[in-house]
Design a binder for these strands. Sequence first.
DNA 1: CGAATGACAGATATTGAAATCTGTCATCGG
DNA 2: CCGATGACAGATTTCAATATCTGTCATTCG
Lengths: 196, 196
Amino acid sequence: MAATETLTAERILEATEEVLRRYGPAKATVVDVARVLGVSHGSVYRHFRTKAALREAVTERWLERTIVALRPYAEAPDAADERLTGWLTALFALKRRKAGGDPELMATFQVLIGENSDVVHRHEEHLVEQIARIVEDGHREGVFAAPERDYATTARAVFDATDRFHDPAHAADWATTDIEDAFAAVISLTQRALRA
Amino acid sequence: MAATETLTAERILEATEEVLRRYGPAKATVVDVARVLGVSHGSVYRHFRTKAALREAVTERWLERTIVALRPYAEAPDAADERLTGWLTALFALKRRKAGGDPELMATFQVLIGENSDVVHRHEEHLVEQIARIVEDGHREGVFAAPERDYATTARAVFDATDRFHDPAHAADWATTDIEDAFAAVISLTQRALRA
DNA sequence: CGAATGACAGATATTGAAATCTGTCATCGG
DNA sequence: CCGATGACAGATTTCAATATCTGTCATTCG
């Protein structure tokens, strides 16, 4: 079956995810990926120049899913302040569910993130853009005050201020009971800062 | 010389720091500490029940230094808003200087922190208390508005919101050029949120 | 012809035997 | 008597030999 399908980058990425999930980042090899696909490892190198490039592509795909999952919250028809809280809450809930539901997978993901800081950087910029749009809308609606410098800077500040609630580096803290209160307090602080 | 002085917990802690500095957290052994002090390793165990307890004590000492260094900023005679910015800036500068000046030592420190999360937790509570006092003073002075819930919660929110600028987990980002702007933006956000 | 293969060199990881370390405690010496 | 010692058992780490992996490329196969 599998042998009859053409070997695409997409199929390789799926197999790589599977292998990473099963063996973890330290033991997942290109040979393993080839084995899952029933091809020689040389064939994998036709689609990805190096193992690092393959991992980077997996990381990108993984992060892309977050962007997609959040888009509905960024484009919700609510007032900007509620939209911002909704978006931040969704981001936190998403990460928290992932971290809590499968800690090993989260650890794997964290290793990949550490290896591909430039990909992460670009991902963060996407997220900050989504925030910036909400803040800009909020100003136009009169819900938020004019930004101190510009929308991008303010959005980045909001992103940084909520860092503890979306950066996987803090995943270990997300299991504690008082994290909800801490999150609510930071959201409240942020809203106060932005409101007109 | 060394043999004539009595063996105290204090001297053992100094030797342990020395050994951690020199060999790093992975290779520093109790035997090394004893060698530096010119005693048998059994003597070290008279003062610290386990190697873990010894490392914990070093961590505590290390964190205590931050508290002491920040006290002047917490008790400065300025208005509360300036005092808060001064304190947060001092905290960031302190950590940043440490991380930038000796990255290896910082890495060592980070390992110790990871091993002793309860000590870190207590340390954070001390820092949050210092913030809480400033926020409380600010409210009394009329510089800051009444807290949403209570001083402790607000102070914790300020601490969490500035996490990216004091948590060693983010030390790698502190070398980038735009970190100053990001810091200024979060400070500005925080001040806006608190001001009356 | 173009995609897939597998042999290969150099780099990296695994393994198990040997060395070192942790923590205890009976004994020593001032 | 009381702090310091060093031998010891079990746990952990190191080291070097062995195996596996990464990335290339001449060759094969459809």
